[in-house]
């Protein structure tokens, strides 16, 4: 009788913990508003129209132009990178995944990839380069954008005892080009 009781308690504990695991998995680990606000009907045509509107204000450039101006050999987007971005992100019609570089303040050429420490180290007047691959919500590659930003304002503040900063970047150049997507 005593052993049966122990067995019953053990089995009950297992069942309860499995239920608790499922409850956490289904509720706590999911974002509260995941996936709900995309209420407008989306289409390829709408996405391409928005992309055209964006690129109208950008200057069309070439790979050679970027190479010469920034000393950067742009890496074309790959199908794998596009699929990976789509898997990790949900958005409206179009979005871009970007590589970020720090520019030499004197020469304007790329000196390194932007890292976490650059967020804190960069000073007003320093410039960065953002190379973004623009895709539709269906994963169709549209163009590669080139944005040069200058750090116009830096505000230091303290939060939870930690010294933090806000960086205000403003665009100085906007260009675009089309590349071949790597398999």
């Amino acid at each position: 009788m005593k052993r049966s009781l122990v067995l019953l308690i053990a089995v009950s504990a297992v069942v309860l913990s499995v239920i608790a695991t499922l409850a956490y998995t289904l509720t706590m680990s999911k974002p509260e508003n995941d996936g709900s606000p995309l209420i407008i009907p989306r289409s390829r045509e709408k996405a391409l129209a928005q992309a055209r509107e964006v690129l109208e204000d950008f200057k069309r450039v070439t790979i050679e132009y970027v190479r010469e101006k920034y000393g950067l050999e742009i890496t074309p987007p790959s199908k794998k990178a596009i699929q990976d971005f789509l898997r990790r992100n949900k958005f409206g019609l179009i979005a871009e995944f970007c590589d970020i570089y720090v520019l030499n303040p004197k020469t304007g050429k790329v000196v390194r990839e932007f890292t976490k420490s650059d967020w804190y180290k960069l000073e007003v007047g320093d410039r960065i380069l953002v190379i973004g691959h623009m895709i539709t919500f269906e994963g169709e590659y549209i163009a590669t954008t080139i944005r040069e930003y200058v750090l116009a304002e830096k505000i230091w503040y303290t939060e939870n005892g930690k010294r933090e900063c806000k960086n205000y970047f403003v665009p100085k150049f906007r260009g675009w080009l089309v590349m071949d997507v790597r398999p």
């Binding site: 992100n89 979005a95 871009e96 995944f97 970020i100 890292t115 953002v130 973004g132």
Partner: peptide, 13 residues
């Protein structure tokens, strides 16, 4: 991250 950063740009739907 310490060794690299990624950027994402999202447009209005």
């Amino acid at each position: 991250k310490n060794d690299k950063s990624d950027g994402e740009i999202y447009y209005p739907d």
